[in-house]
Design a binder for these strands. Structure first.
Length: 193
DNA sequence: TTCCCGATTGTA
DNA sequence: ACAATCGGGAAC
């Protein structure tokens, strides 16, 4: 049975995060189309003290409470943007942080956006991948996949369970950390650490 | 209105 | 190991 994208976007984040691995994040830009494979994700949800949705809805986090398929972009450390794909039902406050991508198409555009040459340094981190995709503000936050410049494409072959690795999330305080980071085993494009 | 700090990155 | 850099949100 073919796994449907809509189905993936409707389940809780801890289930959706590994399911998004292998899918392609795509964006149409002025310079051309960019495509990159999702190789590392993290799950966040409303009962999670490390999640932006934990303390309820604010102007910034409102998109995180929208229905699955919404995009949530936030600004952090005074200089970086991070992108999430909201999942679950409207009001749930569930999202999957995209942490690393493997460049597939539009690699020259990604190089220009990042200002670096090394393909492994284009999208191997949550701040890097937004920069390589030309996301330089939070205007995409609240937009819907497929109804904006950004969309997802299903992989040609689905990942097997043994190809997926799990670990604690990165940059989260010890006390609130959980094994909710997922990445493709042995992939060269995951973030460092 | 003040103050602290972060779902990071690049450099030393 | 650490500085850069600034908006969000809690506290006052």
């Amino acid at each position: 049975m073919k796994t449907d994208l809509k189905k993936i976007l409707s389940v809780p984040s801890v289930e959706a995060a590994p399911m998004l691995l292998g899918m392609s994040l795509c964006r149409k830009t002025k310079q051309g189309v960019i495509k990159a494979r999702i190789v590392e994700t993290e799950a966040y949800h409303q009962m999670d003290p490390a999640s932006h949705s934990y303390r309820g809805m604010t102007a910034r986090t409102a998109p995180m409470f929208e229905a699955g398929g919404t995009i949530y972009v936030y600004f952090t450390y005074g200089m970086h943007y991070c992108m999430n794909i909201v999942v679950g039902e409207k009001g749930a406050g569930e999202a999957v942080l995209l942490r690393a991508l493997e460049p597939l198409e539009g690699i020259e555009i990604m190089r220009q956006n990042r200002g670096v040459e090394d393909i492994r340094n284009l999208a191997s981190g949550p701040g890097k991948l937004t920069q390589s995709f030309g996301i330089t503000d939070t205007r995409l936050s609240g937009e819907k996949l497929n109804r904006s410049s950004i969309w997802l494409e299903m992989p040609e072959k689905k990942l097997k369970e043994h190809e997926i690795a799990v670990s604690q999330r990165i940059g989260i305080k010890e006390a609130t950390n959980q094994p909710w980071r997922f990445y493709i085993k042995d992939n060269r494009f995951i973030s460092r650490k």
